[in-house]
Design a protein around this nucleic acid. Sequence first.
DNA 1: GTCTATAAAGTGATAGAC
DNA 2: GTCTATCACTTTATAGAC
Lengths: 210, 210
Amino acid sequence: MAKKKEQVKEKPLSAELRIKEAARKVFTQKGYAAARTRDIAEEAGMNLALLNYYYRSKEKLFELVMLESIKEFFLGLTGILNNPDTGLGEKLELLADSYISMLIREPNFPLFMLSELQANPDKLIELTGTKDFMNKSVFFQQMAAHLKKNKMNFSPMHVVMNMIGLTVFPFIGKPMIKLMSGMKDKEFLQLMEERRKLIPVWMKTMFKIN
Amino acid sequence: MAKKKEQVKEKPLSAELRIKEAARKVFTQKGYAAARTRDIAEEAGMNLALLNYYYRSKEKLFELVMLESIKEFFLGLTGILNNPDTGLGEKLELLADSYISMLIREPNFPLFMLSELQANPDKLIELTGTKDFMNKSVFFQQMAAHLKKNKMNFSPMHVVMNMIGLTVFPFIGKPMIKLMSGMKDKEFLQLMEERRKLIPVWMKTMFKIN
DNA sequence: GTCTATAAAGTGATAGAC
DNA sequence: GTCTATCACTTTATAGAC
């Protein structure tokens, strides 16, 4: 195994990594079925045969890329959710801020993940190994207590769904939103920046936090 | 059964219609790229050749089905949005109620529509002919006035995005939500029924309506 | 490791019998 | 109108030269 830790500079990636990142891009943009291995090879600037040489098959490559992305996504989520030192309001602010940034950086990721998850719901359970981690989170416990104290008799999962919906939906629905409103990309981006601050405010108002 | 004026009986559909409805189901479940014409024929209980006989090609069939669904979707939306005789609160209640019902009936529709819309953003503009109808809607005007009066200095599009996000997202994210929470279908459905009433309440709280 | 050429399998569409 | 058989083309994957 060769050492690679000194590759901090923007050194050209190895063929192996170039393929993986090209795959991430193409899969995320077009989905598994519509993505062709030829597209990926071309995006990586190299030959189709290399893909199979390094990753055996389209499906293996897909699973690898998918698993990496999902893991990173859930890690960011649980990191904020399970901090015992922050309150509900602060957690909402951190979540909105962190995910708006991620979504501006990778706007196609959620639709990709949710589509593939729907196409094959079982695979992800198997891939992630995680299950009902939300119920056990610090955030969930804090929220359950808060709702009870304030006589809001519904599941904390409503809060979670609202938070994700408010944050993620505009990115998933961007083409529809642009169609309905005639907005341009620049204007859309500006609205998303506004939501960084607005979403926590709305959430706190909705659920009487602070 | 004796003759009735209305054909309430489940009369077998013609081959032509059976194919179209089978196509709607398969396209909606798997998306355009992953759907095979053979799947559609099988779902319709008939031969592959009939598909081409009636609809010329996979793409033609897809466009037809897509256009029908989208038209119905936008029609329901504008019907509520453009009623000058209802106020903001009532519109929000009608929207939530109508769309929760639709989503329980066709839970796969939004992800399908949004995925295909992302894969080919231009096609839909061409197919629907509609553009920035939201800005011209009665709802949008009412909301703009309301926001201004209450010193909320942001675009009414935020309200629209929140409303759709709160309503639609749980259905799009169902597999992820089930993964995070360990929920079963029955429990999920119960939460969706609760949201019928909760969403308008949350929206009114968020935007100080009533 | 990387390429070209090609095998092997999948998929949309059609011809032609009935 | 509906079927079977088949064509034409695409796409994944591999063999073999370098």
